[in-house]
Structures are given as structure tokens and as C-alpha cells.
């Protein structure tokens, strides 16, 4: 299993996946840092000067709260970008994990060795899961660190943000790896992208359903799609922990307008959904092993 995992990492290096990942991620983080810093300071200056001239927002928000709200939106959007990139990466890596090797015939020689199909799949999964987790960790870490240094931003729970984002990517990796053992590469890619899009749409529908006065049917529909592929639900759970506690108290959320951001959530993930999301990758892997064991190569 470890031999296969090691080989998979070598493959990622050789195919310049690692290099491309590092370069593009660095570009993403750099762009975020520059954008965040510029916006933050511009906004800060304009708010301060407006306040000095007495023409500031008439409402209850003071400058600090205004800046916090803006930082929060930027951080959530940034993390949304990270999870989106990581999710696509997870899907692509999963889709490319098994079926292309079957199609090319490269797997014949490998599986004729004293290597069980279970070990092969677990080795593939472990290596890709490790790469993706490191990716999410570094990217979201760099993003949150930037926000902290520039704006003193404090998310609710960093560990849960990163942990749930990693879980989301592992869900997508596991389901696309399952697809890769039963479907041809292209078909699997299409199915996985459609599923991913569906989960995203389900999240939006659920969000709209939760807007007061609330629409039970839409909320249930969102949950149902979340059960089919809990990726978006897990992201929403992660986004909740990215919000600073003071934001949750201070913003409009506290005023009974339970709206929040459309791509994020103002409520933590339901415990039952979290349990489902944790079981989901394991179940996908188990099904992948069962299907792959029966498959003729």
C-alpha cells in the first residue's frame, strides 16, 4: 500500500501536478493578500475620513464593525475560492486515479504483482488525500494568516475550518475514485462534475429555503442533495467556523435577519449531517474496493 502511495506521489511530481499546484496556489494567495490589503486600507481610510467629517454611516455600525464585516466577506470569499479549487482538484485527481491506468493497460503489470486490489486503491487514496490535505492546509492557512496580519481577523475556529474543508475534499476524492473504478474516465468526469454542480445548487436552494419566513420544501430539497453528496454542506459548515464570533453577534444576523452570505452559512453543520459526511468517504472507498475486486481488467 505504501509502495503504491509513494509511487502516486512520484507520479504527481513527474506530471508536474505538484509544481503547477504550488505555482498557481502561490499566485492565488498572493492575489488575495494584495487585494485584501489594498481594499482593507482604502476602506479604512475612507471610513475614518467620513467619520471625521461626520458623514459616516448613520446606523449603529461603527468603523470597526464595518471593517470587520468587509474582512469577513473577503475571507469567506477567499476560502470559498480555495475550497472550490481544492474540490475541483480532488475531483480531477480522483477521476484520473484508476480508470486511465486501466484504459492504458499500465495496471495489468502492476496488479499481476503480489498486490491486492484493496492495497492498490488504499495506496492511491492515501497519497492523493495527503496531497490534497496539504494543499487545503497551506492555502487556507496562508489566507487566514494574511487576514489576521492585515486586519487582526480572528475566525471562530481555525481547526474546524481547515478540518471541514479537508473533509469536503476527501469526500469528493473518494466519490470520484469510486467512479474511477466503475466508469470510463470521461464518463466519470462528466458524472462527477454534474454531481458537484448539483451539490452546489442544493446548497443554494437550501440557503434560499432558510431565508425567513422560510420554505420547508426547499430546505428539505437542499438537505436531500446534501445527503447525495455532502460536499457543499460540509463547506457551509466550514464557512460558519470562519466567521468571527463578534461578527455573528454584531452583524445583521443578530437583528433577526438570518440571511448571511449565499455561499456560506450562519449556522454550524448539523451533527447528523457531519456524521454522514464523515462516513461518506469511508463508504465510497468500501464500495470502490468491492467494485474493483470484481472488475475484469
Amino acid at each position: 500500500m505504501l509502495v503504491v502511495a509513494r509511487w502516486t506521489v512520484l507520479e504527481a511530481r513527474r506530471r508536474r501536478l505538484l509544481l503547477a499546484g504550488v505555482v498557481l496556489s502561490a499566485a492565488f494567495v498572493a492575489l488575495f493578500a494584495v487585494g485584501f490589503t489594498l481594499l482593507y486600507h482604502t476602506q479604512e481610510r475612507s471610513l475614518l475620513s467620513a467619520q471625521a467629517q461626520g458623514i459616516g454611516p448613520a446606523g449603529s455600525l461603527d468603523v470597526r464593525e464595518e471593517l470587520l464585516a468587509m474582512s469577513t466577506i473577503l475571507v469567506v470569499l477567499g476560502l470559498y475560492g480555495v475550497q472550490f479549487l481544492a474540490a475541483l482538484l480532488g475531483l480531477f485527481l480522483g477521476v484520473a486515479s484508476v480508470s486511465p491506468e486501466i484504459d492504458s493497460g499500465a495496471l495489468h503489470a502492476v496488479l499481476a504483482r503480489p498486490l491486492s486490489r484493496l492495497d492498490y486503491l488504499l495506496g492511491r487514496f492515501l497519497a492523493l488525500a495527503g496531497l490534497l490535505s496539504a494543499y487545503v492546509l497551506v492555502m487556507s492557512g496562508a489566507l487566514l494568516l494574511t487576514a489576521r496580519v492585515v486586519a487582526g481577523y480572528q475566525p471562530g475556529d481555525v481547526t474546524r475550518v481547515v478540518g471541514l474543508m479537508i473533509l469536503e475534499v476527501l469526500i469528493l476524492l473518494a466519490v470520484s475514485l469510486l467512479g474511477s473504478t466503475v466508469l470510463p474516465t470521461l464518463a466519470n468526469g462528466v458524472v462527477m462534475l454534474a454531481l458537484f454542480g448539483l451539490a452546489w445548487l442544493g446548497g443554494i436552494i437550501g440557503f434560499i429555503g432558510s431565508i425567513p419566513p422560510g420554505n420547508e420544501l426547499m430546505a428539505n430539497l437542499g438537505t436531500a442533495v446534501g445527503l447525495l453528496l455532502p460536499a457543499d454542506a460540509v463547506w457551509r459548515g466550514a464557512s460558519f467556523h470562519a466567521l468571527p464570533p463578534s461578527f455573528l453577534v454584531a452583524s445583521s444576523l443578530a437583528n433577526g435577519q438570518d440571511v448571511g452570505l449565499p455561499f456560506a452559512s450562519a449556522a454550524p453543520i448539523a451533527p447528523a449531517m457531519l456524521a454522514w459526511a464523515l462516513a461518506y468517504p469511508a463508504a465510497c472507498l468500501a464500495m470502490a474496493v468491492a467494485a474493483f475486486r470484481r472488475r475484469d481488467l
Partner: peptide, 19 residues
């Protein structure tokens, strides 16, 4: 898997990981 320990195999299409 252990039964294949003593076996060598050349596949018909001899395709290997090209990278």
C-alpha cells in the same frame, strides 16, 4: 496476491506508466 509472488508477466500490450 501471495500466489503471484513467484510469477512474472509480460502483458500483451506492454503499456507502462509513461511518465
Amino acid at each position: 496476491p501471495a500466489a503471484r509472488r513467484r510469477v512474472g508477466y509480460l502483458p500483451e500490450h506492454f503499456r507502462f506508466q509513461e511518465w
